[in-house]
């Protein structure tokens, strides 16, 4: 008991620097440490965020790895903790444990085409990967972002995406499941955009994050194009309570999502996709 103060279950103190509303149910929260210091993380990793007296939730980091002075998370408020988190104000305290988990294969993608496939809030953990790719754009060939949401109102980071479009060296394709008036973009699910996207399947690294069904069908479409399984990376989700491999909740076959994932090479987990309720 004496040692548990230093244990991995005790959150560090941070406070809110800024909260920005993204869509009707998502927001981006910037945190800074109470004591001076930097927060280094790799694109794809997540933190456990604790709201005093309410509880703790795993949230992936959506900020720029090159800017470690603040940690940025983009959160969808779908539960008690995230609903309260949304109401926090600048200066309010918050507990942070992390960063945890595996990262997107930015190094491995060097010299290749990069296809980033995101669904819904799944763009948040992929944004740090976008930042890293853009920061060294010349190291990659074609770079495509395929992004699907429920409706045009659910599109995250619209201003940023607009900026990215302006680079002219990115293929950005957004699609919605349900179009509303004034939407002149694509309608349909993300996987349908994969056949139309220019990339060389033999020289491509793909990164996918979104609902499990969307991952499943995106992988299928990538494989049909000829992208090998070991060049497809997916971010998985399971119940996480401790984030350090002790609680057992996030097991996905032999893997712990919290420490072996959340980012997996598809070829390593392919067989698990065939098992119901795994």
């Amino acid at each position: 008991m004496a040692q548990s103060m230093a244990g991995p279950m005790v959150p560090a103190h941070y406070h809110v620097k800024k909260i920005k509303k993204e869509t009707f149910d998502t927001f981006t929260i910037d945190l800074v440490p109470e004591t001076r210091g930097e927060f280094t993380f790799a694109a794809g990793q997540f933190n456990m965020l604790y709201v005093f007296g309410i509880g703790e939730v795993p949230i992936s980091i959506s900020g720029d790895p090159a800017l470690p002075a603040t940690i940025t998370h983009t959160v969808r408020s779908v539960g008690t903790v995230t609903n309260v988190m949304r109401t926090l104000k600048r200066g309010d305290g918050l507990g942070v444990r992390g960063p945890f988990g595996s990262a997107w294969p930015i190094q491995e993608a060097t010299g290749n085409d990069v296809v980033i496939v995101a669904g819904g809030i799944g763009l948040a953990p992929l944004r740090p990967a976008m930042y890293e790719v853009l920061a060294q754009r010349q190291k990659f060939s074609n770079v495509a972002l395929l992004y699907g949401t429920r409706s045009p109102a659910d599109i995250l980071f619209e201003d940023e995406i607009k900026k990215w479009r302006g680079h002219f060296d990115l293929d950005i394709n957004i699609t919605v499941d349900r179009a509303t008036g004034g939407w002149y973009g694509n309608v349909g699910v993300v996987p349908t955009m994969i056949p139309k996207t220019p990339f060389d399947p033999a020289q491509t690294v793909a990164m996918i994050c979104g609902p499990e069904i969307m991952i499943r069908f995106s992988v299928m479409a990538l494989r049909e194009r000829g992208v090998p399984d070991n060049k497809i990376f997916v971010s998985m989700e399971r119940n996480m309570k401790c984030a350090v491999g002790f609680c057992g909740h996030c097991q996905f076959g032999p893997h712990f999502i919290c420490k072996d994932g959340p980012v997996f090479r598809y070829s390593d987990i392919r067989h698990l996709f065939d098992i119901r309720e795994v």
Binding site: F52, G53, G79, T80, N83, V84, T87
Partner: peptide, 9 residues
């Protein structure tokens, strides 16, 4: 179980 409950704290 839950409806979104505002923080009362």
């Amino acid at each position: 179980v839950e409806k979104p409950v505002p923080a009362q704290t």
